[in-house]
Amino acid sequence: MFRSLRALFWIAFRTELFNLPQIISQSVFFVLILSVFNFLWREGAKSGLPLPASASQMVWYLAVTEVIALSVTAIHREIETDLHKGRIAAALLRPVHYLKVICWQAAGTIIARILVFGVVGVLTAVALTGEWPAHRDIALASLALTPIACAVLIIFIVSVGLSAVWLRECSPVYWVFQKCLFVFGGLMLPISMYPDWFRSIAAVLPFQPILCGVAQGLLGATSYDLLRNLGLLVLWFLVGLSLAAYLHARYVRKVLRGEL
């Protein structure tokens, strides 16, 4: 079974890597976003905005959070289509679990994207700021957490996709999930810039360890902070996995009872 999953991983990896129109247009979008925020942080620094680091390091922070956010595929739409076309029910007859298939395929796509966007992010950040990350060793350790953060994110997106069993359309849930990720995760602004009450909410949600927790190395976090974040990522991965497995089991029960 592992061989077939590995094959799915490599097929998805290669397909993504050679999907040039997709890769190029997303890279251009990534460069544009980094440029917009480069302008914003420079203007902010000029007008006395209290930033947690220099404008250049803030661009590096955004480069890392954006690599994670952009690398994760819209897997929820695939799950929704599979649900409506009865492919998940048909997959019950197959020897490999549907969720494993979808997650391994997503993993292949994500790793390909991390490689491409990682290179694009580094080149763009250097070109825009003319600087390397201030804390290079911690920044490298941060980057090592990127695939784990993507894995946590994808497992929650699987649950968002499975919500279509009850809601028919999962896109509205995804929009809110995505914006919560952007805001509570600290995609553009590190969580330290938010007020205290906001930070206490963000602390109990899975979004902060996925984005801000990983990229905090760029803003001077210690190795202890990163280790703690790794623990949180593992914890949230287990929570997300349990949620996805529970929703899938509920779906199977519905199928077997003929309620769908």
């Binding site: 809110v176 914006k179 919560c180 952007f182 805001v183 553009m188 602004l189 810039m193 938010y194 007020p195 906001f198």
Partner: peptide, 8 residues
Amino acid sequence: IFFTMWFV
């Protein structure tokens, strides 16, 4: 939710 960034 998205607009909260500007409030901050």
